[in-house]
């Protein structure tokens, strides 16, 4: 130790290598795994999605039995609107309606709880450029949601086939558009996660974030649009471009001629996700924490 007080020994530290995006991802992955409620919620999402899909498969098989006893003209009418076989194709992706609710809530909680607990200050001190940390957090939850969506859809497909087979409604996974539908169940949830996390980042509040996300995903496309359609015809067309309406085209197998196709629906939803993500990053970069 130097005796001269004017020139203290220069201290050098050699503990790490510095921040980069890969390390920010690793950090966010650790953070995701180490809050027990997150892991529980993700597991529940998977189980519930498969459960609901299988339930709908079972329900289809039941109604097939009922339909067999109906007069022929009524059967013909039902077949025209896609019929039970058409409905059977939606079974693998059937869990997304409920799955998106859980994923949206989780994504909001993941970021808003950082503000709620004060953790965000540790995050921003460790990664003071901020955007790498937030992008990493988005990427981690998007990938996890994607995997859960794909796995849930695959499991749903296989578990539901025996029920459907009982009424000759079963189908091969190679059926036109089916593989895309299964993969896009994951894509859909990943985009839901990014949109929700952007909302959570902007609002910094768990309750407000969840209410806003649910409003955008459920209330706006259904209740609000139904009310507004009475006022103007174009509302119905515009509603096609809402994130959930557009996104659900990704998992559709039978697509009406005038509707968005799988690609178009996906791109519209992705545009929502990217747009909101960019806004949330700008806001978070500029704001005091």
């Amino acid at each position: 130790m130097s005796a001269a007080t004017t020139t203290p020994p220069a201290h050098t530290s050699q503990t790490g290598k510095g921040v980069n995006f890969g390390r920010a991802i690793r950090s966010e992955w650790i953070k995701l795994r180490t809050v027990p409620s997150t892991v529980v919620l993700l597991s529940i999402t998977l189980v519930v999605m498969v459960g609901l899909a299988v339930l709908s498969g079972w329900g289809l098989a039941m109604s097939a039995g009922v339909q067999a006893g109906m007069p022929p003209e009524q059967q013909a009418q039902m077949a025209e609107s896609g019929g039970l076989q058409g409905a059977a194709y939606t079974v693998p992706s059937g869990g997304i309606i409920f799955g998106q609710l859980l994923i949206a809530s989780l994504a909001v909680v993941l970021i808003a709880s950082e503000w709620g607990t004060g953790m965000i200050r540790s995050t921003m001190v460790a990664v003071p450029k901020r955007i790498p940390a937030l992008l990493a957090k988005n990427l981690v939850i998007a990938v996890v949601s994607f995997v859960i969506g794909v796995v849930a859809a695959l499991l749903s497909y296989y578990v539901a086939q025996p029920f459907l087979a009982g009424e000759d409604l079963d189908f091969a996974i190679t059926h036109d558009g089916m593989v895309a539908s299964i993969i896009n169940t994951g894509t859909y949830l990943a985009l839901i996660a990014v949109i929700s996390m952007a909302i959570g980042t902007m609002l910094r509040n768990t309750a407000g974030g969840i209410v806003t996300a649910v409003g955008l995903f459920f209330v706006l496309p259904t209740i609000v649009v139904q009310l507004l359609t009475l006022l103007a015809d174009w509302i119905d067309d515009a509603a096609e471009y809402l994130p959930t309406n557009a996104g659900q085209q990704m998992v559709s197998v039978n697509i009406a001629d005038d509707a968005l196709n799988q690609w178009q629906g996906g791109l519209v939803m992705a545009a929502w996700a990217v747009g909101l993500l960019v806004i949330s990053l700008i806001v978070a970069k500029r704001r005091d924490v």
């Binding site: 290598k17 607990t117 004060g118 460790a126």
Partner: peptide, 25 residues
């Protein structure tokens, strides 16, 4: 800066591990 800049549901060890990971510490 403020002692409670930590997620309350995470353990101390995991909190430090997550912070260290950003720097490859």
């Amino acid at each position: 800066l403020d002692a409670k800049a930590v997620h309350t549901k995470r353990s101390a060890h995991n909190h430090l591990k997550a912070m260290a990971a950003t720097h490859g510490i």
